[in-house]
């Protein structure tokens, strides 16, 4: 992840938890009275097929500042910006893969909800199936041994 993202990250997360709550509360009330305070908006594309592509992409991309939510779910400003960016790219004719590539080059693999399959993640992707095969192997061994064992009790 590029260091430029870090400050934004911490300000988002610390909002309202630090010692500046009163100030923030006042600020909030001030802001709340202003029109057009929120930039969070439905950014739908007119073409339903393109919009469906955008929605699918949104679900596969992580909101960088909210930990665990996709940009489809998040109310954060960054997520709204990324949603708008995806739609611009789609309108410009980029493929889904190109858009993901672009975002990964900007934010790193962290932005992908589905981790890539490469040298750093082989263990991650293969462990579940290795565990299943290992457990099944042990189970077969146990069953074979138990079926050969002499009957000890009724």
């Amino acid at each position: 992840m590029e260091p430029t993202d870090a400050p934004r990250d911490s300000t988002e997360r610390n909002r309202g938890t630090g010692g500046m709550k009163q100030v923030l509360a006042a600020l909030f009330l001030l802001l709340a009275t202003l029109p057009a305070f929120a930039a969070r908006a439905p950014e739908s594309l007119a073409d339903p097929a393109l919009e469906a592509r955008a929605r699918t992409l949104q679900k596969e991309l992580r909101c960088m500042v909210c930990q665990g939510e996709s940009i489809d779910e998040s109310n954060a400003q960054l997520a709204a910006d990324l949603r708008a960016l995806i739609r611009e790219r789609i309108k410009a004719g980029d493929s889904d893969e190109q858009i993901k590539q672009f975002l990964v080059s900007r934010y790193g693999d962290f932005i992908l909800m589905k981790p890539p399959f490469d040298a750093s993640t082989y263990a991650l992707w293969l462990t579940p199936f290795a565990a299943l095969i290992l457990a099944a192997g042990v189970a077969i061994w146990v069953v074979v041994r138990a079926s050969r064992a002499p009957q000890r009790k009724a």
């Binding site: 996709s70 909800m113 750093s120 993640t121």
Partner: peptide, 30 residues
């Protein structure tokens, strides 16, 4: 096997980050 999956999916990003500094997300698609 299911427990191992959840375990590795939960802890792998932390371990990878700690060891190599690479950040990945393990989200619902995984």
């Amino acid at each position: 096997a299911a427990t191992a999956t959840v375990f590795v999916g939960t802890l792998y990003p932390l371990a990878l980050d700690a060891m190599t500094g690479t950040k990945i997300s393990v989200g619902p698609p995984y």
